[in-house]
Computed example of a mutant assay.
Amino acid sequence: MTDARNKSDDEATSPAEEDPVIGYILRAVSSGKDVAPQEIAAAIAADRAKPTAPEDIWRKYMTAVRQQAIHLARQDKLLIIRKGEVADPNDFKGLYKLRKVSSD
């Protein structure tokens, strides 16, 4: 039996495998454009919700998107943008967008 802590770097799971919401976020920002979290939540809802679900079912996923975006921003994997400026992932309020970290 293999313990997760003993896995080599080659066997380690990617963030997207750990939580599917992270995968949605990383795919959304991979285009290089700023992405509203509502767009990501809507994509998740479109893939996961039942056909009989209400149109605003995407709201159910907003908390998960925000939490995982903060997690990724703390790991320097993406930027949280508020009013055109990079926001502190530990202290921001209101509307925001997500941006891929540039590889300068």
Rank of each mutant, 00 (worst) to 15 (best):
I80Y: 00
S14A: 13
E11W: 03
N90I: 01
F92Y: 12
E85Q: 14
P89Y: 04
G94T: 07
I80T: 02
S30P: 08
Y24P: 04
R27I: 00
L72F: 02
Q68L: 04
K93C: 00
K83A: 10
A73Y: 00
G84I: 07
A49R: 11
L26T: 03
E39I: 02
I70C: 06
R27G: 00
K50Q: 13
A28R: 07
A36V: 07
R48H: 09
D34I: 01
A69H: 07
I81E: 01
Q38R: 13
M62Q: 11
D88W: 09
Q68G: 01
P54H: 09
R66P: 02
P54F: 03
I44P: 06
G32R: 12
E17T: 09
A42T: 14
A36T: 06
A53M: 08
S30T: 09
I80E: 01
D91P: 03
A46P: 01
E18P: 05
R74W: 03
V86G: 01
V65C: 08
A53V: 07
K33E: 15
P51V: 03
Q67C: 04
R59A: 05
D34P: 00
F92K: 06
F92H: 08
G23V: 05
A28P: 01
G23M: 05
L26E: 11
Q67F: 06
A73F: 00
I80K: 01
A64N: 14
D10Y: 13
Y61W: 15
Q68W: 06
M62Y: 04
D47V: 00
I57F: 10
P51T: 07
D91Q: 12
K77H: 10
V35N: 08
P37V: 08
D47P: 01
A73T: 01
A45S: 15
G23I: 04
K60R: 15
P54Y: 06
A28K: 07
L78R: 02
E17W: 05
A46H: 11
N90Q: 13
Y24W: 10
G94C: 08
D10S: 14
P20W: 08
L26D: 03
A42R: 15
D47I: 01
E18I: 15
M62S: 10
F92P: 05
E17P: 04
W58S: 12
I81G: 00
T63L: 13
N90L: 11
Y24K: 09
Q75W: 05
G94S: 09
Q68E: 14
A42M: 12
P54G: 08
M62W: 03
K93M: 06
E55A: 15
P89N: 08
P37R: 10
Q75V: 02
V86I: 15
D10I: 14
A43Q: 14
K83M: 04
A16G: 03
I57T: 12
D76E: 15
A87C: 07
Y61D: 13
I25V: 11
I40L: 03
A16Y: 06
W58D: 10
P51Q: 09
A87H: 07
P20Y: 14
I70D: 05
I80L: 05
E17H: 10
D47Q: 08
S31W: 02
S31I: 03
K33H: 13
Q38I: 10
A16L: 06
E85I: 09
I40R: 02
G32P: 11
I22E: 02
A41E: 05
A46Q: 12
D88C: 10
A43S: 15
T63R: 15
V35G: 06
